[in-house]
């Protein structure tokens, strides 16, 4: 079977798997819903009103959040890995997530300190405000890292710089926490554990539109990302404006990371593991395949993590970061192991 045909069958398989996981995300949870009721609720029949509330108010927004956040973080990770030509680059490794966190901390905690009431209670404007702050934090860190990367050729050094930036922004966040009100700190800590359930029915539309725009834009970067794989000098020789292109990639990956981080908290490992998994499944480095495939696999793994976090029998949800790390870390080890063989 030719590679192309094989890829198409893999994609079809993945779409089927994704659909099954999506339905399971609606189906499985602390309250078990009989399949008939779920069917009624989805396909018109009014059905049971409690079931309706659970599905439409909680599980559907959460499933959509998981699906879009997974796609967004994975694509952001892929963009960063290609930009820095480093398999360990991803939103959390390079300190981008913590940059967003700092932005969020500043808006939630500092407005609390200054204005005596946290911005978190202001509705839509606070949504935009928090997203914007997360975006500024993320892009600021990425710009810093890119600035360093033109001076430090060694990629390990760059990762260490990223980790140090994480600690730095973490420490500023801690200082802010020290001066903040208890309620704000509580809100911030909950947010920091990571969850797909915080978006909810009122904000899901705004969240979805933001993410879909970012994902759509990323599709237009394929050709330049492919050229970038050859290295900066070759890329420039082939007519690419490398500096401008780098800034565009940073803005798109920073934006995707920031939106997800603003709404779901800092979520680790998806951005790192999914692009590797995708490369190994499709055995390709062509971003015209990789970007859509990374989105698809990111959605699937993320929905799977959400499902695991919500397995019946648990009181409430497991922190999503515990699950993503549990699934993501072995994937990364496996990939590095394979690469060295």
């Amino acid at each position: 079977m030719s590679r192309n045909k094989l890829n198409i069958s893999i994609i079809i398989g993945l779409i089927i798997l994704g659909t099954i996981l999506f339905i399971l995300n609606l189906f499985v949870g602390s309250v078990s819903i009989p399949f008939r009721d779920l069917f009624d609720v989805i396909f018109g029949d009014d059905g049971n009103s409690t079931v309706r509330t659970i599905v439409y108010e909680y599980r559907l927004p959460q499933a959509i959040t998981a699906l879009l956040a997974g796609a967004a973080l994975s694509v952001a990770g892929l963009l960063m890995q290609t930009l820095f030509r480093n398999p360990l680059a991803d939103p959390s490794m390079l300190g981008v997530s913590s940059g967003s966190s700092l932005g969020v901390a500043v808006t939630i905690l500092l407005t609390g300190i200054l204005g005596k009431s946290a911005l978190s209670s202001f509705g839509l404007w606070s949504n935009i405000g928090v997203s914007l702050a997360a975006f500024l934090g993320a892009t600021l860190v990425l710009m810093l890292i890119l600035g360093f990367s033109s001076r430090v050729r060694n990629m390990t050094t760059l990762i260490i710089i990223g980790l140090m930036i994480s600690y730095l922004s973490g420490s500023i966040t801690d200082i802010l926490k020290f001066f903040s009100m208890k309620e704000d700190i509580h809100a911030f800590v909950i947010w920091g554990m990571g969850t797909f359930s915080a978006v909810g029915p009122s904000k899901i539309l705004f969240f979805s539109v933001c993410i879909i725009i970012g994902l759509f834009v990323s599709l237009f970067l394929c050709k330049n990302l492919n050229i970038l794989l050859l290295g900066d000098l070759y890329a420039e020789n082939l007519g690419l404006n490398v500096k401008r292109n780098n800034i565009i990639i940073i803005l798109v990956s920073g934006y995707l990371t920031a939106i997800v981080t603003a709404y779901c908290g800092p979520i680790a490992f998806l951005g790192l593991a999914i692009p590797h998994l995708t490369r190994f499944i499709f055995r390709s480095s062509d971003h015209r395949t990789l970007i859509p495939a990374t989105m698809l696999i990111g959605m699937i793994v993320s929905m799977f993590c959400n499902l695991v976090a919500r397995m019946p029998g648990f009181e409430g949800n497991l922190p999503i970061n515990a699950v993503t790390a549990f699934i993501g870390a072995p994937i990364v080890i496996w990939v590095i192991f394979k690469k060295n063989n």
């Binding site: 492919n226 050229i227 050859l230 290295g231 082939l238």
Partner: peptide, 21 residues
């Protein structure tokens, strides 16, 4: 150049095709 692309799944075809971009 003496620098070489080091992506694992980059095929010979992909590299040569990049000359057309």
């Amino acid at each position: 150049l003496t620098e070489r692309p080091d992506d694992m799944f980059l095929k010979v075809y992909d590299v040569v095709a990049s000359g057309r971009c």
